[in-house]
């Protein structure tokens, strides 16, 4: 009996802080977000007007669709760039060199996103380093503004989210047995065949977890689109910021926030569903 009581006390010791954390900072805030999105700032009950505004104002839903579409493109680009890099590190480079390159890949991502974006701004702007170099060697006749357009913004997003694809892919690729590739090669398989039938299927779990994390980060990013994108390339998080901080329209902002949350959850769910994986495995 004494032991039982002690055990329960130990359980509560672990349970209470965790329960408080999840209840007060995760469950209730999101319940409140949902509630506010269905109310209006004037006194009154349930309303759909915040969601109606989203669908009736093209600027809102166009931004939403654009943000989703660009996030997919960025995720795809990151995957295409990261696969060969991971392959080189795990399979082509000498073992020690691979370990060193892996450390080298990790380092830039410990530096804050803001500083990385700032680096690109100094490089790319009209008075930036690249323009100065290229005009001085005569490659450009006059400086070109390379910032503030969609292409640069996408490049910036690819840059800032790259690591979250490389690391999981390196993880799964490392576990791929070299002898499978050797056997396929000895039997005369072409490079494309080896990639298509051995490497890609084996790396699928890593690609999916990387894809989910990258997509979510890009969808929810604020800094990169804000600082590198142009006046016409508004990101949906900027719409949320405008509603909440600039217009002080918290109900509208709550509705936008909830829509973004639904979109990201849906994509994650679909990604897991298509590949038959579990969330708890993917995040680890």
């Amino acid at each position: 009996m004494n032991g039982r009581i002690r055990l329960n006390w130990g359980f509560l010791f672990f349970f209470l802080p965790v329960a408080l954390w999840l209840l007060l900072l995760i469950v209730l805030p999101h319940a409140e977000l949902l509630r506010l999105s269905f109310t209006s700032s004037r006194p009154g009950g349930f309303t759909l007007q915040n969601y109606m505004a989203f669908f009736s104002e093209p600027i809102y839903w166009l931004t939403f669709v654009r943000t989703a579409f660009y996030s997919v493109i960025v995720t795809f680009l990151v995957m295409v760039i990261a696969l060969p890099v991971a392959f080189y590190i795990t399979k082509v480079a000498r073992v020690r060199a691979g370990g060193f390159l892996m450390v080298l890949i990790l380092v830039p991502f410990w530096v804050s996103e803001l500083i990385r974006v700032y680096g690109w701004i100094i490089l790319l702007r009209e008075s930036g380093v690249i323009n100065r170099l290229f005009t001085s060697i005569g490659l450009f006749s006059r400086p070109i503004e390379m910032l503030y357009n969609d292409v640069t913004m996408i490049m910036g997003l690819v840059y800032t989210s790259m690591l979250f694809m490389v690391v999981p892919i390196v993880g799964v690729m490392d576990a791929l047995d070299d002898s499978l590739i050797e056997a396929a090669y000895d039997l005369g398989a072409s490079k494309t065949a080896i990639w298509r039938t051995i490497i890609i299927p084996h790396c699928m779990p890593g690609m999916v977890s990387g894809g989910i994390i990258v997509f979510m980060l890009v969808l929810g990013s604020y800094l990169t689109p804000n600082l590198m994108g142009g006046k016409n390339s508004l990101w949906f998080t900027e719409q949320i910021y405008n509603q909440i901080i600039l217009y002080f329209n918290w109900n509208q902002g709550a509705a936008f926030g909830f829509l973004l949350l639904i979109l990201s959850s849906l994509v994650i769910w679909a990604g897991l569903r298509v590949t038959g994986q579990k969330l708890s495995r993917v995040v680890q």
């Binding site: 995760i26 805030p29 409140e32 949320i240």
Partner: peptide, 20 residues
Amino acid sequence: LMLAPLVIPGVILGISILLF
């Protein structure tokens, strides 16, 4: 629920805690 914060965009986490 414990895993959820990883897949909730940081912006959403910020506004929902602010509003709550």
